[in-house]
Amino acid sequence: MKIYYHEDRVLITELFDFIPKHVFECGQCFRWEEQLDGSYTGVAHNRVINVALNDNTLIISNTNRADFEKIWFEYFDLGRDYSEIRQRLARDKRMEPVVDYGKGLRILKQDEWECLISFIISTNKNIEHIKKIVNEISNKFGDYITNYQGKDYYSFPEYFTIASLKISDIRDCMVGYRDKYIHGAAEYINANREWLYSLKYLEYEEASNELKKLDGVGDKVSHCVMLFSMAHFKSFPVDIWIQRIMRALFSISGNNNEIKRLAEQQFGDYSGFAQQYLFYYAKENNIGSKNRKI
């Protein structure tokens, strides 16, 4: 990987595992939008950037060297060799087509608070609806960041901002019954300000149990938050797409905890990476539908 710094962008060559569509459309993040030219513009860590892949050169625009080194290198997990991960997972021949299809996918290192609320919102919602809600909350209660290419962008509101709101204010953002869960989480974190950001230092199960102290956070939400913001890569969130592909590929069924346990036995320390390849493959190929099989 070679990195070239310019005044308003960073160029990266010889990075063989980064395809923006696979990164931003694998169900892990909700503030990235595809542009007409195929690039993606997104909001993270109170910044707005555009990411494009052009002739095998990754172009990160509207940024600089300082932000790249402080934020984006870690956010995009650029220090990890994903080709090695794919090779390890593909030792099981059943995973070969899955990791080949998802080549270029990377797990983002998101902010814990925004990730937590995003996945509380995600319960029984599709990805497009989650995006709309997260953007609505940001536009109403977040701080203005900048106008980029003719569009205004706002940060995701801090926990103390959400804690200061009325529950009805949150409900107006189309969150339904989750309004009280979002408000309750904000109040708890506002009263225990070191708690959420210390969980990444705990053991996997301990961190999950801590998160599940919050109303509205069960196994799936806690596992998503740990995987997508805390680098707990043993985490294996289970939803309907994972249920379907685990049944189709590995003949594994049962309740979500049983699927998770068997998957973690299968993939070990690479469970989280396997989950993302499996989820993306299943969703994009509609695995489990009446007319679609592997």
Rank of each mutant, 00 (worst) to 15 (best):
D172H: 11
D215M: 14
A163S: 15
H129W: 13
M246D: 03
D169Y: 04
L249W: 11
A90R: 10
A163Y: 10
T123W: 12
Y188A: 05
R247G: 08
S61M: 06
D8I: 00
Y181K: 06
C224F: 02
L108A: 06
V238N: 03
G272S: 02
G42E: 01
N256A: 15
G218K: 11
G272N: 02
A52R: 09
Y154R: 03
K260F: 00
D215G: 13
H6G: 04
N135Y: 08
N54S: 10
I12F: 09
E128V: 11
Q149A: 11
M95F: 09
H6P: 00
Q266P: 00
I19K: 14
F76H: 09
S61K: 15
I19N: 13
V217S: 07
S138F: 04
D239S: 00
F236G: 02
Y154K: 06
S118T: 08
N135L: 04
F228Y: 12
M1R: 08
I259Y: 10
K260L: 12
T41L: 00
E258C: 05
K125Y: 00
F250G: 13
P20M: 10
L196C: 11
N285Q: 13
A274K: 02
M1F: 10
I71H: 09
I182Y: 03
Y5P: 02
E34N: 04
F16R: 12
A248Y: 12
D17C: 11
V175M: 06
